[in-house]
Write a protein that binds this DNA or RNA. Structure first.
Length: 170
DNA sequence: ACGATGATGAAC
DNA sequence: TTCATCATCGTA
Protein backbone atom coordinates (compact mmCIF):
# COMPACT_ATOMS: atom_id res chain seq x y z
CA UNK A 1 0.00 0.00 0.00
CA UNK A 2 1.41 3.38 -0.96
CA UNK A 3 2.01 5.59 2.04
CA UNK A 4 1.91 9.29 2.74
CA UNK A 5 5.47 9.75 1.46
CA UNK A 6 4.52 8.66 -2.07
CA UNK A 7 2.05 11.53 -2.33
CA UNK A 8 4.14 14.07 -0.44
CA UNK A 9 6.17 14.96 -3.54
CA UNK A 10 5.79 17.24 -6.54
CA UNK A 11 2.32 16.80 -8.04
CA UNK A 12 3.66 16.23 -11.55
CA UNK A 13 5.89 13.45 -10.23
CA UNK A 14 2.99 11.75 -8.46
CA UNK A 15 0.74 12.09 -11.50
CA UNK A 16 3.47 10.60 -13.69
CA UNK A 17 4.04 7.65 -11.34
CA UNK A 18 0.42 6.68 -10.57
CA UNK A 19 -0.25 4.95 -13.92
CA UNK A 20 0.58 1.28 -13.40
CA UNK A 21 -0.45 1.39 -9.73
CA UNK A 22 -3.65 -0.25 -8.50
CA UNK A 23 -6.64 1.61 -7.15
CA UNK A 24 -8.20 -0.63 -4.49
CA UNK A 25 -11.71 -0.29 -3.08
CA UNK A 26 -13.04 -2.42 -0.23
CA UNK A 27 -16.70 -2.37 0.81
CA UNK A 28 -18.22 -4.91 3.23
CA UNK A 29 -15.38 -7.37 2.67
CA UNK A 30 -15.55 -7.20 -1.11
CA UNK A 31 -12.56 -5.84 -3.00
CA UNK A 32 -12.36 -4.20 -6.41
CA UNK A 33 -9.06 -3.34 -8.08
CA UNK A 34 -8.22 -1.37 -11.18
CA UNK A 35 -4.85 -0.53 -12.67
CA UNK A 36 -4.63 3.23 -13.05
CA UNK A 37 -4.13 4.31 -16.65
CA UNK A 38 -4.84 8.02 -16.68
CA UNK A 39 -4.23 10.96 -14.33
CA UNK A 40 -4.11 14.74 -14.33
CA UNK A 41 -1.99 17.04 -12.16
CA UNK A 42 -3.45 20.17 -10.56
CA UNK A 43 -0.23 21.66 -9.35
CA UNK A 44 -1.14 24.39 -6.85
CA UNK A 45 -2.73 27.81 -6.26
CA UNK A 46 -0.81 29.37 -9.18
CA UNK A 47 -2.41 26.83 -11.56
CA UNK A 48 -5.51 28.59 -12.90
CA UNK A 49 -7.17 25.27 -13.68
CA UNK A 50 -6.78 24.14 -10.06
CA UNK A 51 -9.69 24.63 -7.66
CA UNK A 52 -7.31 26.12 -5.10
CA UNK A 53 -6.41 29.02 -7.43
CA UNK A 54 -9.49 30.86 -6.14
CA UNK A 55 -8.45 30.44 -2.53
CA UNK A 56 -9.77 28.16 0.19
CA UNK A 57 -13.51 27.42 0.00
CA UNK A 58 -15.73 24.83 1.68
CA UNK A 59 -15.43 22.57 -1.36
CA UNK A 60 -11.67 22.56 -1.78
CA UNK A 61 -10.73 22.47 1.91
CA UNK A 62 -9.42 18.85 1.65
CA UNK A 63 -6.77 20.09 -0.81
CA UNK A 64 -5.16 21.98 2.08
CA UNK A 65 -4.80 18.83 4.17
CA UNK A 66 -1.82 16.48 4.16
CA UNK A 67 -0.72 14.41 1.18
CA UNK A 68 -2.73 11.22 0.73
CA UNK A 69 -6.02 12.89 1.66
CA UNK A 70 -8.97 12.09 -0.59
CA UNK A 71 -10.63 15.04 -2.35
CA UNK A 72 -13.97 14.13 -3.91
CA UNK A 73 -16.21 16.76 -5.42
CA UNK A 74 -19.52 16.83 -7.29
CA UNK A 75 -19.87 18.41 -10.71
CA UNK A 76 -22.27 18.80 -13.63
CA UNK A 77 -25.13 17.98 -11.29
CA UNK A 78 -24.42 14.25 -11.37
CA UNK A 79 -20.76 13.26 -11.33
CA UNK A 80 -18.20 12.58 -8.59
CA UNK A 81 -14.50 13.26 -9.24
CA UNK A 82 -11.73 11.48 -7.34
CA UNK A 83 -8.53 13.32 -6.47
CA UNK A 84 -5.60 12.49 -4.21
CA UNK A 85 -4.00 15.41 -2.40
CA UNK A 86 -0.26 15.86 -2.98
CA UNK A 87 2.67 17.84 -1.56
CA UNK A 88 2.94 19.43 1.86
CA UNK A 89 0.11 20.41 4.17
CA UNK A 90 -1.33 23.82 3.27
CA UNK A 91 0.04 23.57 -0.27
CA UNK A 92 -3.23 22.83 -2.10
CA UNK A 93 -2.49 20.52 -5.02
CA UNK A 94 -3.89 17.17 -6.15
CA UNK A 95 -3.97 14.48 -8.80
CA UNK A 96 -7.25 13.63 -10.53
CA UNK A 97 -7.66 9.93 -11.20
CA UNK A 98 -9.24 9.83 -14.67
CA UNK A 99 -9.24 6.17 -15.57
CA UNK A 100 -8.26 2.57 -14.89
CA UNK A 101 -7.70 -0.28 -17.31
CA UNK A 102 -11.31 -1.39 -17.09
CA UNK A 103 -12.88 2.05 -16.96
CA UNK A 104 -12.20 5.22 -18.92
CA UNK A 105 -13.52 8.54 -17.62
CA UNK A 106 -13.34 10.06 -14.14
CA UNK A 107 -17.10 10.00 -13.53
CA UNK A 108 -17.50 6.41 -14.69
CA UNK A 109 -14.61 5.41 -12.45
CA UNK A 110 -16.21 6.86 -9.31
CA UNK A 111 -19.52 5.26 -10.22
CA UNK A 112 -17.89 1.84 -10.66
CA UNK A 113 -15.85 2.03 -7.43
CA UNK A 114 -18.72 3.60 -5.45
CA UNK A 115 -16.77 6.72 -4.59
CA UNK A 116 -18.75 9.74 -3.42
CA UNK A 117 -18.81 12.53 -0.85
CA UNK A 118 -18.63 10.03 2.02
CA UNK A 119 -14.90 9.61 1.28
CA UNK A 120 -14.17 13.31 0.93
CA UNK A 121 -11.49 14.53 3.35
CA UNK A 122 -10.55 11.04 4.57
CA UNK A 123 -7.09 9.57 4.19
CA UNK A 124 -6.29 6.78 1.79
CA UNK A 125 -6.00 3.51 3.69
CA UNK A 126 -7.56 0.19 4.67
CA UNK A 127 -9.64 1.88 7.35
CA UNK A 128 -11.22 4.16 4.76
CA UNK A 129 -11.71 1.33 2.28
CA UNK A 130 -9.82 3.10 -0.49
CA UNK A 131 -6.09 2.89 -1.13
CA UNK A 132 -3.45 2.47 -3.79
CA UNK A 133 -1.04 -0.44 -4.20
CA UNK A 134 2.02 -0.92 -6.34
CA UNK A 135 2.65 -4.10 -8.30
CA UNK A 136 6.28 -5.20 -7.94
CA UNK A 137 6.11 -6.66 -11.44
CA UNK A 138 5.38 -3.26 -12.95
CA UNK A 139 8.30 -0.84 -13.26
CA UNK A 140 6.91 2.61 -13.75
CA UNK A 141 10.10 3.82 -15.43
CA UNK A 142 9.56 1.25 -18.19
CA UNK A 143 5.97 2.21 -18.92
CA UNK A 144 5.17 4.24 -21.99
CA UNK A 145 3.41 7.32 -20.71
CA UNK A 146 1.80 9.80 -23.08
CA UNK A 147 1.53 13.42 -21.99
CA UNK A 148 -1.43 15.51 -23.14
CA UNK A 149 -3.24 18.73 -22.19
CA UNK A 150 -5.81 18.39 -19.43
CA UNK A 151 -9.47 17.89 -20.32
CA UNK A 152 -12.26 20.41 -19.78
CA UNK A 153 -10.16 23.26 -18.38
CA UNK A 154 -10.46 25.87 -21.14
CA UNK A 155 -11.72 28.30 -18.51
CA UNK A 156 -8.15 28.48 -17.14
CA UNK A 157 -6.89 30.26 -20.26
CA UNK A 158 -4.55 29.02 -22.97
CA UNK A 159 -1.38 28.98 -20.90
CA UNK A 160 -2.74 26.63 -18.25
CA UNK A 161 -5.19 24.72 -20.43
CA UNK A 162 -2.36 23.74 -22.77
CA UNK A 163 0.06 22.48 -20.12
CA UNK A 164 0.75 18.76 -20.69
CA UNK A 165 -0.36 17.77 -17.22
CA UNK A 166 -2.41 14.73 -18.28
CA UNK A 167 -0.63 11.37 -18.13
CA UNK A 168 -1.87 8.36 -20.06
CA UNK A 169 -0.40 4.87 -19.99
CA UNK A 170 -0.48 3.67 -23.59
C1' DA B 1 -23.98 18.38 -30.96
C1' DC B 2 -26.62 18.79 -27.02
C1' DG B 3 -29.29 18.20 -22.79
C1' DA B 4 -29.24 16.31 -18.08
C1' DT B 5 -28.96 17.99 -13.38
C1' DG B 6 -27.74 20.31 -8.88
C1' DA B 7 -23.87 21.87 -5.90
C1' DT B 8 -20.81 25.65 -5.71
C1' DG B 9 -19.06 30.25 -5.34
C1' DA B 10 -19.30 34.99 -6.54
C1' DA B 11 -22.16 38.78 -7.16
C1' DC B 12 -25.81 41.55 -5.71
C1' DT C 1 -31.01 35.31 -2.78
C1' DT C 2 -30.02 34.76 -7.48
C1' DC C 3 -27.32 33.16 -11.24
C1' DA C 4 -23.65 31.42 -14.31
C1' DT C 5 -20.63 27.80 -14.24
C1' DC C 6 -18.95 23.19 -14.23
C1' DA C 7 -11.62 18.75 -13.88
C1' DT C 8 -18.67 14.82 -17.60
C1' DC C 9 -21.43 11.44 -19.99
C1' DG C 10 -25.12 9.25 -22.73
C1' DT C 11 -27.83 9.75 -26.54
C1' DA C 12 -28.54 11.53 -31.18
Amino acid sequence: MLSHSFFDRKTLTVARELPGKYLVRKINGKIWRGKITETEAYVGPHDLACHSSRGKTPRNTPMFAEAGTIYVYFTYGMHWMLNIVTEGKDFPAAVLIRGTENITGPARLTKFFKIDKSLNGKKLGKKTGLWIESDSKIENSKLKILRMPRVGVAYAGKIWANKPYRFIQS
